[in-house]
Design a protein around this nucleic acid. Sequence first.
DNA 1: ACAATATGCAACCTTTTGGTTGCCTGTCAA
DNA 2: TTGACAGGCAACCAAAAGGTTGCATATTGT
Lengths: 113, 113
Amino acid sequence: MKNDLDVVFKALADESRRELLDRLRTENGQTLGDLCARLSKSGAVMTRQAVSKHLAILEDANLVATIKRGREKLHYLNPVLIHEIGERWIGKFERSRLDALSTLKKELEAKNE
Amino acid sequence: MKNDLDVVFKALADESRRELLDRLRTENGQTLGDLCARLSKSGAVMTRQAVSKHLAILEDANLVATIKRGREKLHYLNPVLIHEIGERWIGKFERSRLDALSTLKKELEAKNE
DNA sequence: ACAATATGCAACCTTTTGGTTGCCTGTCAA
DNA sequence: TTGACAGGCAACCAAAAGGTTGCATATTGT
């Protein structure tokens, strides 16, 4: 269970994993079996083991937390790191947003003269 | 030059590429040669071609825009998609942030009884 | 014109990633 | 206790990602 920024970005880089997060957001505390149902890779359904691996990656990135209850394992969304990316990483680019665009616009106009 | 969310997330998944974005944020409109200087992969310096590939990926994801001026190619940060991820993608998780945590906390307490 | 500079393109290589199959372990319910 | 159910583990595989070397092209300054 690392906490590095790179691990989080890499975890978010996969469509299936983002879909898993979405589904936990819709309904928190699902089991592997629940999440396994109807998770598809471009149309085709993927196996339980594949989903399990994705969940392990999300858990390692600290994006989901799990609780074992009996023979099932419940998965809970942990939105803290998503929030952190928004605050710390995206935030710093936010500051330069308008500035960057105006600079680019100026350069483009200079080129077209 | 696609505009898909997946392409953007995949582009952001690499540490070197995020560093390139950081450096364009610090100083916009740099050439490949500029960006090439001192870009390292865990200590070791990487070749111009590797940096070029990374820039191509960023450009394809629409995170950088380029202008050719003579024999050099200037790279400009395009923060629009980063902003969009913050607004549309992170935003929807923001809503469920406190709720998710309280749910998880309740489950944990229930387990420890 | 010509050498140096700035970049592009393609082949190739290695590691990582996403996925599968097969089998094993633990838990619940009849 | 004995199936059936939920999940874990490990080996294996194909494709994608990251990087390199080598050569080609275009532009600039002298």
